[in-house]
Computed example of a mutant assay.
Amino acid sequence: MLSVIIPTEGDERTAVATLAALVPGAAAGIVKEVLLVDRAKDGAKSGVIERVADVAGCRFMAFDGTRAAALAAGARQARSPWLMFLHAGAVLDNGWIDETTQFIQLVALSGRPRAGIFRYARSPYADTRLRDSFKFVARMLTGPTAEQGLLIARDHYEQLGGYRPDARRSEARLLRQLGRSSRTMLRSRIMVA
């Protein structure tokens, strides 16, 4: 039902945290595959992510390019009709499985293309800084950011042109292109460190 694409930077800690939150979704049958697209510049770091992917039962792709190009490459390799894009280190709330399933069913029944974005939640373990206050205000004014994840049907993603590897700020561009009318803020939270 769902392919999850996670771009990594060679840091296994962030990838493992995100993967751990996806395990219940795989057990419930909603997550069919996870692709770890590693953009590590150092081959040794890439080997660590490849081992993490092997142990976790994920597909691994070594990639040299921008994050948007990595996301686009992962989407091309994904096999499911629904795509979920998550940043490494983002951890989904416990209720995400039921809500994601309901969202996919509602979109299918309505026949109207929509994308889901998870509600932002700062990690309770993160140090709060002045910069975080500015980020909060910016998020309120400009809307969701790419670090909040994206749940979208493959055909809707392709219709919008997906992540363009050559475009600046491709993730933000796709969110703007969705607009308020075709995106839903899901109740499930995503904790971002």
Rank of each mutant, 00 (worst) to 15 (best):
L2Q: 09
T128E: 13
T145E: 13
D98C: 04
S80F: 02
Y125T: 12
K41H: 11
A88D: 10
I190C: 05
R176K: 12
L175I: 15
M61D: 01
Q177H: 09
A15P: 08
L151K: 06
G10T: 01
S133K: 14
R67K: 14
G47T: 03
E99L: 04
S181K: 12
L150K: 08
I97R: 05
K45W: 07
F85T: 01
R176D: 10
Q159Y: 13
G43K: 14
A126N: 11
S3H: 10
I190N: 03
L174M: 08
A20T: 12
D93L: 08
T14A: 15
T145D: 10
R129D: 10
M84V: 05
P124G: 10
F85K: 02
M191W: 13
S181N: 12
M140N: 10
I49D: 00
M84P: 04
G143A: 03
M84S: 05
S80K: 07
I5M: 00
L175F: 01
I117Y: 00
V23G: 04
V52W: 06
L2Y: 08
L106I: 06
G116C: 09
A62C: 02
P165V: 03
A21G: 04
A88E: 07
T145F: 08
L83E: 03
G65P: 12
A75R: 07
V107P: 00
G74E: 03
A17L: 14
R176I: 00
R176L: 06
